[in-house]
Nucleic acid binder design. Structure first.
Lengths: 396, 396
DNA sequence: TCGTAATACTAACTCGCGTTAGTAACGCGT
DNA sequence: ACGCGTTACTAACGCGAGTTAGTATTACGA
């Protein structure tokens, strides 16, 4: 009962011309075909419901109009961290704009051989790699194979590596400078580990803030979970216990991973600690998870949706062989000050760069994001919002 | 510099056999090929890094090992509602299990002609349609065209319509019965409208609860936003103003849409209303957005990830031409009682069915979901948790 | 009338694979 | 020596498109 698909040759027969002629008409190629024939072919193609067959088109043209996407963790959608959701939303904006579709690879990053094979099979014209796993063998292998690839939120050392990310170094800097300005001297720092570029860069920025303030780099108590070999939730507990037992005890905590901060904030009351009175907390990403936390968390925002859509732009330019002005595109970050470091919400937001506007003043859940930053309703004021946020490419 | 892909014929030449032989060896088909030849071909294929070309394979076999997914709204990832994220997570589990990939169509549901064309192009073997839009013309058109399709969270009247959903009628029933048991008689109900199947069914269940309690169906104050022609946020405000002006004033509100409940809860304090003291609130879906709301919201949970992965199972069975025991698969729902209807969290959870276990007792963010329900940390007790949640198919 | 050019096409090849049908070589029984 | 069956392959077709190269017809100028 399955009605057979209408092929190009069916249209050709109905129109009384050759398949080649139909192909020329439909692809808009002018091969001296008279208007009358052209109209007849177009009309019949429409009437008969002709649609080019995807696989045949791909085989003949060598293009799929699809881009692939690999997630470091397929379950990340439902983790507390909505990083992936925001990036994916930007990616979909990008693919829609370029008239591409998105192929979500379901294989796990840990099974990188399977992913490698699928990507090389040419099911997509290029691939976005989002949020690198530890011990990454996939990225270098793909680059070596010459597949068009753009890394999102990380990069590796390779002459063909293209990437989109935020300015993580500046993010670490802003976070730590902020707590220093609030008077804190004993600062803890939860890091995923230095093999992950954003972990490393945020730590570098943190150290820069310390040096700038005349503090020693060693005063920063860095907790690295990658090397601990513990499940994530247990690590958080252990790290907090350790932190609270330190002497002098840290009064500020900067946590690189937004999903972990929830574990922290939920665990602290049971340990007899109040936020921000006894421990001040700064997170990253500044999505609604930070904004709606109790208390709302001061957080380093990055324009996740812009990063997603910029990655698509970049990848498609590579696919089409166009030149790119830079291999690594960096977006600026912004510090959203909330109650976890600032009991009085009427104080101002810190914005280090003059080219970054702070978020719009709080209205309940703005329905449209005015800039590329995640939609959140931080309770902040705007000290000087004349300058608007600029997405212009900026040099490294 | 782009190194040319290794084709089957390259392997054949290297092995000194025909392409057909290579094809037979690689597809494991026994055509009397001696073990020695077989080994040689396999070794060379591996050494040369041969990977079958996706489009060629699809063209030859007529199968892509891909399933398509259409979202009613590509921006839904970042809406307050994480419904899509949970379903998508389940879908990815399903595609991983069956060794399929997922094709995310980036075109908008409103531009259904574009989607229709893409789906008919055969880029995927079948398609999941998630969360239907109003005035749906796509679904019937696809069914009429004979494309394998499974509808998630809705269904339409059509002999070929397959769907996966939760028991929405029971959900509406549980929600309203719960507030009736709490002593409420003036109940408001926010509905998306009756053309959306879950909106209609939840309302039916709500009315059943009223009738069962000996209350008149007319006592339910139903607010339908679909017919209002207002943007969603404005509608919420207007509906709330209207609600509060009613005499007698409703003391309970059941809201079908989880993302709207946030608008409600955030707007109420400014209107001088406290939850739950002056207005008791029940939401649906019971994802972390309800669980982490202040106050935490009583909510009707549905096993979103199971729904997603069941939809994939169903679709792939259809693609492979296997028989399905039923055209519409319904999952049971569960009521998670939280503080928005129950100021004292030490009271018990209401669980209408004995075959549905309540959620696990609260631990900070369980890392693994024990059943198919969204991960959330409702503060509830378990009255009798001997029975475990059953995913066995249940008759309509 | 012939040559050339423009018009209006189409045959045939290609993409990389699955698959059917057929064949050449060999062994073995009679 | 012949026939037959088994072993070990391969030629050729098809999937549904794009694309190249070529042809038949007509028009027009010399």
């Amino acid at each position: 009962m399955e009605s057979r698909r209408v092929r190009m040759i069916d249209v050709a027969k109905a129109a009384g011309v050759s398949r080649t002629t139909v192909s020329f008409v439909l692809s808009g190629r002018d091969a001296g075909i008279p208007a009358e024939t052209k109209q007849r072919v177009l009309r019949l193609a429409r009437q008969m419901g002709y649609r080019p067959h995807d696989a045949a088109l791909a085989l003949a043209t060598g293009r799929t109009r699809r881009i692939g996407l690999v997630l470091n963790d397929p379950t990340s959608f439902i983790r507390s961290d909505s990083y992936v959701a925001h990036v994916l939303s930007g990616v979909l904006d990008g693919t829609l704009k370029h008239n591409y579709n998105l192929l979500l690879h379901s294989a796990r990053y840990t099974d990188w051989h399977a992913l490698y094979g699928e990507i090389l099979s040419g099911a997509a014209d290029g691939t976005l790699l989002v949020g690198r796993f530890e011990r990454d063998e996939l990225t270098p292998a793909l680059l070596e194979a010459g597949v068009p690839v753009v890394c999102v939120s990380y990069q590796i050392e390779h002459p063909d590596c293209y990437s989109v990310d935020c300015d993580n170094e500046q993010g670490g800097y802003l976070a730590v400078r902020h707590v220093i300005e609030r008077g804190h001297r004993q600062i803890a720092f939860f890091s995923p580990g230095e093999t992950i570029s954003w972990g490393r860069d945020r730590l570098l920025g943190a150290r820069r803030a310390l040096v700038e303030a005349g503090l020693s780099e060693e005063s920063l108590r860095v907790f690295v979970w990658q090397e601990a070999g513990l499940p994530s939730a247990e690590w958080t507990q252990e790290a907090l216990s350790f932190l609270l037992a330190l002497n002098p005890r840290p009064t500020a905590l900067v946590c690189c991973e937004e999903w972990r901060i929830r574990q922290v904030v939920e665990a602290l009351p049971a340990m007899g600690m109040r936020v921000p009175e006894e421990l001040v907390v700064v997170s990253f990403n500044s999505t609604e998870h930070s904004a709606r936390c109790r208390p709302p968390l001061t957080s380093v925002a990055q324009p996740l949706e812009q990063i997603g859509s910029a990655a698509v732009d970049m990848l498609i330019k590579r696919i089409e062989g166009r030149k790119l002005p830079e291999r690594h595109r960096r977006f600026p970050v912004r510090l959203d000050v909330r109650e976890s470091t600032q009991p009085d919400p009427s104080l101002a937001v810190i914005s280090d760069r003059k080219d970054i506007a702070p978020p719009a003043a709080s209205q309940p859940v703005p329905s449209v994001a005015s800039n590329g930053f995640p939609r959140c309703n931080a309770v902040v004021h705007q000290p000087d919002a004349q300058e608007t946020f600029s997405t212009q490419q900026k040099g490294r």
